[in-house]
Design a protein around this nucleic acid. Structure first.
Lengths: 297, 297
DNA sequence: CATATTACATGAATTTTACTCATAGGTTTA
DNA sequence: TAAACCTATGAGTAAAATTCATGTAATATG
């Protein structure tokens, strides 16, 4: 079969003028190239060169092969380079799954320096999964899962990277704004605003209201963090969010963070991976950068 | 080195789904493909596939290779096909050199059916040569020389394909128009029109006037056959041309062909080639078609 | 739920191929 | 006319590709 190797020979002879020099360039003997092309000629049924004095001149068939070589060899080389980069972890795609809405704000702070350091790595963030975050991870739809609630399971491993307090956000005028912490019963006359996910996945319910048998006046959902805070600031309800997120908006909005219960609710953002896999270098770098975001918040 | 063969494997596995089926399609064993790709993976430093159940799924590197395969394999196949056609003489270029002006009219009659029969063969006609027609032939600038005066030489071979009489063309009013043949002295008061080449290459001089020590009133040159005949028709001179060419224009112009000398001058168009070369099929076909043009003239 | 089936991996043996060495036969240059 | 080059080629050898036999794991089957 006509191989890349044959094209490399034809290209080298065209470039260096003689078989002998081409052989040197390819770290082979003149004989090797001569035998190699002879075999190709038998296979093709057409000569590649004709002797002109002591040089070789391409025949029509040979010219065709040289054209092919010029088109195709650079593509081989480029692909090999790209794969080398993939192998070294300098290039690739980092597909990140998110299971926590407010984590998005945190993720942005990790991603932007990461993209600068690894210009050839694509970051792809996904939020909706057919079989849940774990399924996506195990099914190779994503390579990394960002979640505050690690669900330990065979084949997965987690790494905590960022600890924060989950607090209630209230308008500055709210009666709990001055208190050291809020109690479940305090919210009985409030509208609670959350992201649109099942209540079981919301810590305000699972760790605060439900255990105390308390409830709110009304529960409504909003997609985006910014609107949610605007609503709270306007006195239209209260919400539960990471403390650092609230603090970032306190100078612009009339909002106050209040501890949830006497002891507060503390969470940890975890990164989840498939266990026992050799991770590309850039993925390790991402993890390192993620660990260091504490200082930024 | 990453070879076409590797890409063929990756492509076949993508197409057939499993290594085993790909192996069948490639007429190899499953083991051969497995070993082959394993070696490639070591070379690249990156895995091509990852096992998912008992199937193989491409890694990022593998996906890159598949993309390369999809781009590059069709090019290999196309080039191999084209070269096969070149080998079979169905495709190529026929570079024809011309050493005789009126032959062009004859050549057109051969070329047009030839082009129909060999749509993938390019015909390239050249008329001016740095080192003469023979030099062009031996130097591979042309593959075939059309000449009425074969100059036999080592390394060349000729084939006569078309015989014709070289005649004098005179206006219908000329006094020799009625005669059976013209004699050298008859042209003493005439203007002789020829193509612009050395007189030694013109048969009217070398075979008619010069041997008899005769000459014409004036000698002028014209490039194209049609204008030459118009001039003769208008009584502005006489010319020497193939008889069949004159006959083709007799119904439109007031011209008459007259034999040159009692015995006439008979010529033969020859095709010249480099000797001892295996000629492509289409070139042999061209020769056959050239031989059959007698009947068309 | 055990069993048959299907699919890939792997080590060893073998066949095939690629490569080198030595040398011959041309061509060009001094 | 020799010296310097260049390619072609036959024979021997090193290397690679391929097969065979077998292992292991996942999936389908009855």
């Amino acid at each position: 079969m006509l191989e890349r190797h044959h094209l490399a020979i034809i290209h080298a002879v065209d470039k260096h003028g003689t078989l002998t020099e081409a052989a040197n360039a390819l770290h082979l003997t003149q004989s090797a190239l001569s035998h190699g092309i002879k075999k190709l000629e038998v296979h093709l049924g057409a000569p590649v060169w004709r002797k002109d004095g002591r040089r070789l001149r391409l025949t029509q068939a040979g010219q065709g092969l040289l054209n092919l070589a010029n088109r195709v060899l650079p593509q081989f080389e480029h692909s090999e380079q790209v794969i080398q980069q993939i192998a070294q972890g300098l290039r690739g795609a980092l597909r990140i799954g998110m299971e926590c809405h407010p984590c998005y704000q945190w993720l942005l702070k990790v991603v932007s320096p990461f993209l600068q350091q690894f210009p050839d790595v694509d970051v792809d963030v996904r939020q909706a999964f057919q079989f849940g975050g774990l399924g996506a991870l195990l099914g190779y739809d994503i390579d990394m899962l960002i979640t505050p609630d690690p669900l330990f399971q065979k084949g997965l491993e987690y790494l905590p990277v960022f600890e924060y307090e989950h607090v209630l956000v209230v308008p500055r005028s709210h009666f709990v704004a001055e208190k050291a912490f809020v109690q479940p019963q305090d919210l009985r006359h409030d509208v609670l605003i959350t992201y649109p996910v099942e209540s079981s996945r919301l810590d305000v319910f699972s760790q605060f209201l439900t255990p105390a048998g308390a409830s709110v006046k009304r529960h409504r959902t909003i997609e985006t963090t910014e609107i949610m805070l605007q609503m709270v600031s306007a006195g239209r309800g209260v919400a539960a969010l990471p403390k650092w997120l609230v603090e970032q908006h306190q100078k612009d909005l009339a909002i106050v963070p209040v501890r949830l219960g006497k002891r507060g609710i503390f969470k940890n953002i975890h990164l989840g991976f498939r266990a026992g896999e050799t991770r590309p270098e850039y993925q390790n770098a991402f993890i390192e950068m993620a660990k260091q975001t504490d200082h930024l918040m």
